[in-house]
Computed example of a mutant assay.
Amino acid sequence: MRAAVYHGPEDIRVESVSKPELSSPDDAIVRVTHTAICGSDLWFYRGDSDREAPSGVGHEPMGIVEEVGEDVRSVEPGDRVFAPFVISCGSCEFCRKGLHTSCVNGDSWGGDNGGCQGEYIRCTQADGTLVRVPDRYADDEEVLQALLPLTDVMGTGHHAAINAGVEAGSTCAVVGDGAVGLCGVLAARRLGAERIIALGHHEDRLEIAEEFGATDLVTERGDAAIERVTELTNGGVNHVLECVGAASAMETAAGIARPGGTVGYVGVPHGLDGGLDVFSFFGKNVSLRGGVAPVRAYAEELMADVLQGTLDPSPVFTKTVDLDGVPEGYRAMDEREAVKVLVEL
């Protein structure tokens, strides 16, 4: 089969690799039809994180089940499915608590199960991981593109909103205008937030934020951003979604939180070598909740809204490529020419 392979910083190649095969009774082989390039993929692409080279890449798969192991019960060949960015069993202590990212039988994409930016993957723990799309929507391209973000960014934005305590009638702020931040805006609107302040620096992305429900846009940075939000809200907001992970973003989140408020953080931490000033949280009794998003826990709930037409995160895909175009997709995201790249195989 053909797949995108990492060979080093800024070196993604599409080449022939071995097609994964069933190796366990709980495996499934999926022919990938849609996948995506994630902002977190840029860490190894830029050389900011270590990754084995060569290695398959990608963690946001959607496709058609081709073959299943003898113990798989939830899907069968021919089913349309998608899968979250972390493999989970669905039955261990942590999966039962909705914390699938801490699954004791969990796994990640890549290695001998195939990177998701390729033609086929082997999904271990298929019953706990794969989400089946109802047959009536299996070939509806608009629906499929709206469902694909549930593999990562929509579920992650939702996790931020949930942990920030967003509820009907509330005022909240979203720090970050990447795909996760934009989906955080959409999640906050879905949960009934009355006022949503989006903080970002890119006009095209903030236009999407408005489309998704942002009522106020703040383009200032650092202390100026904190002053602006404080002015807009007469003292800050009770619910902050931190969707970047950088030290500066966390400082902004703490600064705009109202005393007693909550920051829901999902940005992958980076640039925190000097530590985080927790006194900014301590002094105002601001709670910090979140972490890596267990998107599998939210999949059915969010899919139901997509299928009834009340949730559509697909506008985060601002560029579409085929498999051969994956290296160009990485370049476009790295240079901020695209918010998120859709890959159609």
Rank of each mutant, 00 (worst) to 15 (best):
S16H: 15
R195K: 15
A179G: 11
E300A: 12
L186S: 00
S108P: 04
G8Q: 07
S91M: 14
V133D: 04
G283Q: 08
D11Y: 11
V174C: 08
G235L: 01
V72L: 10
E300P: 05
V180T: 10
V131N: 04
V86K: 01
G283P: 06
N238H: 12
G325K: 02
A138N: 11
R136M: 04
Q125M: 07
G245A: 03
E52K: 15
L232Y: 05
P269C: 11
G176R: 11
N163A: 05
A160D: 10
C89N: 10
V268G: 10
R258I: 14
F85I: 08
S18T: 12
E300K: 10
E242N: 12
K340N: 05
V266D: 01
R190L: 12
S88A: 09
V75I: 13
M333N: 02
A299L: 14
S280T: 13
S108G: 15
G39L: 04
C116M: 15
L199K: 05
D177G: 05
V72D: 00
T171R: 00
E167Y: 04
R46H: 14
P327Q: 02
L99C: 06
E335D: 07
A193C: 09
P84N: 03
N163G: 06
P327G: 04
G264L: 13
G157Q: 04
I121Q: 04
P294T: 10
G283S: 12
G118L: 11
M250H: 07
H239C: 05
I162S: 05
R13P: 09
R51Q: 12
A198G: 01
D305K: 04
G184I: 09
C243G: 02
T320Y: 06
C172F: 09
R296A: 08
A247V: 10
P9M: 04
D48T: 03
S280H: 09
P84H: 02
R336K: 14
E60H: 11
T156V: 09
A224W: 06
S24F: 13
C172V: 13
L217T: 14
L307S: 06
G192P: 12
E211D: 09
E328R: 07
D26L: 07
S24H: 08
A188D: 06
A297H: 07
P84R: 01
R13T: 11
D334R: 12
E10P: 02
T318M: 02
D312L: 13
N113F: 13
K97R: 15
D324Y: 05
K340G: 01
D41E: 11
V185R: 00
A4S: 07
P61N: 02
E337S: 10
I226Q: 11
E93H: 15
P25I: 07
E251M: 10
D324A: 15
S23K: 14
Y137S: 10
T129E: 03
E142I: 14
V306Q: 00
L199E: 03
F279S: 14
E194I: 06
